[in-house]
């Protein structure tokens, strides 16, 4: 383990057991069969790194987060934060991790921003004097100074998200676990929140685990990504490498007339490529690592009628879908 490694998961596995029969007398069970929520997940998040956990519902993201903050235990492998075992040293782990749950409801809605932070700070064991200095600092960090004495119920969704972040930052954690931090936040506020998180990561060298369904946000974070499906890791690495490996850009040829466009499309189809005509442009997804020049060369005299050539990178959504497709086939 490197000195900079903050969050380390090694072969992390969680098998949810069915609810024991005696318990079903008192309450209807939601689990009657064992469910493997995590299956041998390996991950290292170093200080100053963001790792985005991406996956459909049931991928195992929440289970991973719940193991890290001690709300459930793993059935195999290990999860450590700053060398502390998430299962055995749960109480200490909860002191070095800042947890930002996805829901606003985790805040005391009728209390003020300051009161919410005071309660959290005291439970974290922060001395009163330290807390008195720290609360204005974190509120300023998340740009909520003006809302210090405001009742949470009166704050906007974006402000509440920032308050949840302030609460996570209050005790000065080394690792942040952010469960869909921008869930109910509008795109502009979400952008501000993510920029803030990125700045904090750079300045304070925090290790951040973040889950989000908004793929454009994951891309904006320029982070390490862990693509998960049914408890397994389908891809682990940075998004640039993912693009290099999986991106199949679409090439668009813009021609003078629709007739030229159809002629080019026929030629491309004859080369075994998929081509779609839209007025004077032809979109073509070229196969493999073949350079665009090779495709152009095979167009022969038709290439002279091409006015523009544009390359459209694959949207991250499609890229991830391809990775999942491979995972399903495997």
């Amino acid at each position: 383990m490197d000195g900079d490694d903050v969050i380390v998961l090694s072969g992390l596995t969680k098998l949810y057991e069915p609810t024991p029969r005696w318990m079903r007398i008192f309450a209807r069970s939601h689990l009657t069969e064992p469910v493997k929520a995590l299956d041998g997940v390996d991950l290292t998040v170093r200080a100053g790194e963001i790792c985005a956990i991406v996956g459909p519902n049931g991928a195992g993201k929440t289970t991973m987060f719940r193991i890290l903050v001690g709300l459930t235990t793993s059935t195999g492998g290990t999860a450590t934060i700053m060398g502390l075992d998430a299962g055995r040293d749960s109480e200490q782990v909860r002191q070095v991790v800042g947890w930002m749950p996805s829901e606003d409801r985790s805040l005391l809605m009728r209390a003020t921003s300051k009161e919410n932070l005071q309660l959290h700070g005291r439970l974290q064991g922060m001395p009163r004097r330290e807390l008195a200095e720290r609360i204005p600092y974190v509120l300023e960090t998340v740009n909520l100074t003006a809302q210090t004495e405001s009742v949470v119920a009166g704050l906007s969704a974006g402000m509440r998200a920032r308050l949840r972040l302030a609460r996570a930052l209050l005790p000065g954690p080394r690792a942040l676990i952010l469960d869909e931090p921008t869930g109910a936040v509008d795109p502009i506020a979400a952008h501000g929140l993510l920029t803030l998180i990125m700045d904090l990561v750079k300045q304070e060298r925090l290790a951040v685990l973040i889950s989000s369904h908004r793929l454009e946000e994951i891309e904006a974070l320029q982070s390490h990504a862990l693509l998960m499906d049914r408890g397994r890791v389908n891809y682990s690495g940075d998004l640039d490498s993912l693009r290099r490996e999986w991106d199949r850009p679409v090439v668009e040829f813009v021609l003078d007339t629709p007739a030229d466009a159809y002629a080019v499309a026929d030629n491309l189809a004859a080369q075994g490529l998929e081509a779609h005509v839209d007025d004077t442009s032809v979109r073509c997804g070229h196969a493999g690592d073949e350079p665009v020049g090779a495709v152009l060369a095979r167009l022969g005299p038709l290439a002279a009628s091409i006015r523009h050539v544009r390359e459209h990178p694959m949207p991250l959504r499609d890229l991830i879908a391809r990775v999942y497709e491979r995972g399903t086939k495997a």
Binding site: Q95, R134, P171, G172, R174, L200, Q203, E204, R205, L206
Partner: peptide, 10 residues
């Protein structure tokens, strides 16, 4: 002040 407040586990 910095966001990272305790040097070790308090």
């Amino acid at each position: 002040m910095t966001s990272v407040y305790p040097a070790t586990v308090n």
